[in-house]
Amino acid sequence: MTTVSGIRTVGEQDPEKRNSPVTDENDDLDYDLHENVGEHTHCHFNDIAYPHGTFVRSGGSLLRCDRGVWLVSVSDDIDSP
C-alpha cells in the first residue's frame, strides 16, 4: 500500500476481507446502498476502516467514502470532485 499526494493506494478489494460496496456517484442504486448500510461513519476496504470523506485509489479509480459506501469519483482532482 502506498500514498501519493496524500491519497492511499489500496489495490483491489479482496473478497475474503470486509469491504464496503462501491458505486458510481451517478448510479441510481446509490440511494439503495446507503439505505442498506445504515448510518455508517466509515467505509471498509480489505478489513481497514476509513472515515467518511476519505479518498483512496483502487486500480485506476479514485474512491471517496460516503457514509459506508465507496463512491467512484468522477474527477481526479480531489479539491473539486
Rank of each mutant, 00 (worst) to 15 (best):
P15A: 10
E12Y: 13
T9E: 14
V56P: 03
S58P: 00
V56T: 10
Q13G: 00
I7N: 02
S5E: 13
N36R: 14
P21K: 09
D47C: 07
Y50V: 01
D32V: 14
Y50D: 07
S73W: 02
V37N: 07
A49G: 04
D79F: 15
D14N: 15
G38K: 07
E39G: 10
S20Q: 03
A49F: 01
V22F: 01
H40A: 12
A49M: 05
P51N: 04
V72E: 09
V37W: 05
D77A: 09
L33W: 10
R57Q: 12
G59V: 05
D77C: 06
R64Y: 02
D32Y: 11
T3Q: 10
L71I: 15
S61F: 11
D66S: 10
D79K: 14
D66W: 09
L33D: 01
G6Q: 11
F45C: 07
P51L: 02
G59E: 07
G59K: 14
H44G: 00
V22H: 03
N36E: 15
V72W: 04
D47G: 08
W70P: 05
G60E: 15
G38L: 11
G68P: 06
E16N: 13
R64M: 10
I7A: 03
G6D: 07
D14C: 02
L62T: 10
D28C: 00
H34Y: 08
D76K: 07
E35Y: 05
V72Q: 11
P51T: 04
L71K: 13
M1N: 06
Q13C: 00
D76Y: 10
S5Y: 10
V69L: 02
S58R: 13
S75M: 08
S5K: 14
V74K: 15
V69S: 02
D30H: 11
R57S: 08
D32G: 04
S5P: 00
E16T: 15
S80Q: 09
H40S: 11
T54A: 07
F55N: 10
P81N: 13
N19H: 05
L62E: 01
E39I: 02
V74P: 02
D77N: 15
D14M: 02
Y31D: 01
C65F: 08
E16G: 04
L63S: 06
D66T: 01
L29T: 12
F55E: 06
I48H: 07
C43Y: 00
G59L: 03
Q13V: 05
A49W: 00
R8K: 14
V10K: 09
E16V: 04
P81F: 02
I78E: 02
T3L: 09
E25D: 04
G38N: 07
G38Q: 11
L29D: 08
D30L: 13
P21E: 07
R67K: 15
T3R: 08
G59R: 12
D24N: 10
C43D: 01
F45Y: 15
G6P: 09
